[in-house]
Amino acid sequence: DLSALRVEEVQNVINAMQKILECPICLELIKEPVSTKCDHIFCKFCMLKLLNQKKGPSQCPLCKNDITKRSLQESTRFSQLVEELLKIICAFQLDTGLEYANSYNFAKKENNSPEHLKDEVSIIQSMGYRNRAKRLLQSEPENPSLQETSLSVQLSNLGTVRTLRTKQRIQPQRTSVYIELGSDSSEDTVNKATYCSVGDQELLQITPQGTRDEISLDSAKKAACEFSETDVTNTEHHQPSNNDLNTTEKRAAERHPEKYQGSSVSNLHVEPCGTNTHASSLQHENSSLLLTKDRMNVEKAEF
């Protein structure tokens, strides 16, 4: 173990290094160091905050020279020094078990990766560091076993998940096959086929009936047209017969005018059967003409 005197000496050296690497504005270890034209180094955030307070150039807090945003430059070497100082402080805390008085939040800088452990060898070769390295080497064999167990647990979990997924996939297939086998029997399929065939026959029977009705309507229309044509021909046949009657009536009127007047009046009210309204109107006109002729003949006879 380190003596108290040596611990104090190391602590004083760390404090001196820390004062050199402090920012003059925030009085902390410089984060993202930036250098000016006057070779003074500050935190990048502190300098941008200072420049944004005034429009135009501002003055350096140490030498009062003008500073602009374009004049600022990043210093990589200074950032490396800060990183190495942080590593020294971490090693000091691990070796002594004491917390550094002016320690900052170094938890963000710590890294437990194997590459980081290899890099620590180049920091300080001390008894405390050696003991700590031995402890780490002793704890390393235990870690692979834990990793193997965790991997086995994960693989077993994956296997159970896969088996569950396969079961879920197989179950719908089985149910679907069961439904297909038990849903419709052979008799049901035959009945469905016969039902479809009967429906098709009914459709075939319905369509000819409609065509037959249309044919019957067409035949009825044709018969009505033929009947009207026969009526017209009958009226045409009746007209010459009426003319013959008129000639006979004229002759009778010349011989017996008194008797014919009474008979002509009675004939006005008689309509021949089986004739249309057109034929009756023609008869009325003929009878009126005959009456006028008879009157003329009677007057001539009187004179």
Rank of each mutant, 00 (worst) to 15 (best):
L86Y: 10
S264E: 08
K192T: 13
L158R: 05
R212D: 06
N105P: 11
C225E: 05
R165C: 09
G56W: 03
Q261R: 06
G210P: 06
R70I: 13
E110N: 13
L289P: 06
P144G: 11
S288F: 06
L94S: 03
I89F: 05
P257V: 05
E110K: 06
Q205I: 01
T233D: 14
V161D: 09
N15H: 14
C225F: 15
F78R: 00
D294R: 04
T160F: 03
L48C: 10
E249D: 04
I67M: 04
K108I: 07
S35R: 05
F92L: 01
T189L: 05
V161C: 06
H269N: 08
S281V: 12
I124M: 15
I123F: 15
D184Y: 02
R169Q: 10
N111D: 15
T149D: 08
H40Y: 00
G97S: 03
S152P: 02
S79I: 07
K222R: 11
S35H: 04
F42M: 01
R162T: 08
E236T: 13
T149L: 07
K87A: 13
V153G: 08
D213H: 13
T160D: 12
P114L: 07
S264K: 11
P57A: 15
T275I: 03
S219T: 10
N131F: 01
D200H: 04
L48K: 02
E142L: 11
L155I: 09
R77P: 06
H40P: 00
L94V: 08
L21K: 00
A4W: 11
L151N: 15
L2R: 14
D39R: 09
M296S: 07
K55A: 09
A223M: 06
G159K: 12
D66C: 04
S126C: 05
L291Q: 06
V232N: 07
S266H: 02
V82A: 02
L51W: 01
Q73Y: 15
V190A: 10
S139D: 10
I215K: 06
F45R: 15
A16L: 04
V34A: 01
H278V: 07
C43V: 00
R174M: 11
C23V: 00
Y260H: 11
G210I: 11
V270E: 08
V34D: 00
V10C: 04
R70P: 11
Y195I: 04
T247C: 03
P272K: 11
Q239L: 04
D188C: 06
K37G: 14
K167N: 11
L86S: 13
A220I: 05
